[in-house]
């Protein structure tokens, strides 16, 4: 449960406004935040609180309307498209709520899709073994259960040995048992590979797994909790 003091992200005054149909949504209203190497952070908040927007900006999928987002001392908010692409390719692993696997590719190929463009990746088989799917390498997404699909997605995210693993409601579409299995995999990646991990959820029970829990509400950080003890995933109940 050590908190590494090496700062990975530094956000100052982040705001994000985007149009949603005919209305303007202010998703972030000035967020200040630091994230540290190797820590496990849970972003908690009701829907519309801005947690997904924050995660997208952390991952270089979106840019803030104002404010600065530093990664390793460099400001992501001024990156152009090509620089953001390289940033994502080299440093970030994503896990999405709906897995976003390519349906026409097998589990192994979905992972290979990412390892082929990474500099020092795990072999796809090893990444899939890590998530407990060594025996499902050649299955297509349609042949896998939701939990298995999400584990493929995690394998795909970690196979490039990213510095940061960003998970957007990774258990949102799963039942409890499967969700626990997926959380265990994320926890294991965080512990064994030392990957800075950010997980979005609106499920407060999951927060017990984290080093820190950041509560978002209405586009602002409401409070930050430090857990003295990280709970193991199998101990979590919801």
């Amino acid at each position: 449960m050590t908190i590494h003091r090496d700062r990975v992200f530094l956000a100052r005054g982040l705001t994000k406004i985007y149009p949603m149909g005919e209305i303007q949504v202010q998703a972030l209203r000035g967020v200040d935040l630091e994230l540290f190497a190797g820590e496990f952070v849970v972003l908690l908040g009701p829907s519309g609180s801005g947690k997904s927007t924050l995660l997208n900006i952390l991952g270089g999928l979106d840019s803030p309307s104002s404010g600065a987002m530093q990664y390793g001392g460099r400001d992501l908010s001024v990156y152009d498209d090509a620089e953001l692409t390289r940033y994502r390719r080299e440093h970030v692993g994503f896990v999405f709520q709906f897995y976003n696997l390519i349906p026409s590719l097998t589990a192994r190929e979905n992972v290979a899709l990412v390892t082929e463009i990474a500099r020092n990746p795990l072999p796809p088989e090893e990444a899939l073994t890590l998530v407990g799917l060594a025996d499902r390498l050649d299955h297509f997404p349609a042949q896998l259960s939701g939990g298995e699909q999400q584990r493929v997605a995690i394998a795909r995210a970690v196979a490039k040995r990213p510095e940061v693993l960003l998970c957007d409601e990774p258990t949102g579409a799963l039942d409890v048992q499967t969700g626990v299995l997926v959380l265990a995999v994320i926890d294991r990646v965080n512990r064994e590979l030392g990957t800075t991990t950010v997980v979005i959820t609106h499920n407060a029970a999951i927060a017990a797994m984290a080093d820190r829990v950041i509560h978002l509400s209405n586009g602002l950080i409401a409070r930050i909790d430090h857990n003295a003890q990280r709970q193991a995933p199998h101990e979590i109940v919801w």
Binding site: A82, T85, R88, V92, N100, I102, L113, V114, I117
Partner: peptide, 16 residues
């Protein structure tokens, strides 16, 4: 559109 987004999220550039 969505698959393009996913590929880009993994760090595939526009050219690729």
């Amino acid at each position: 559109r969505e698959q393009i987004g996913t590929l880009k999220a993994f760090g595939y550039g526009n050219g690729a």
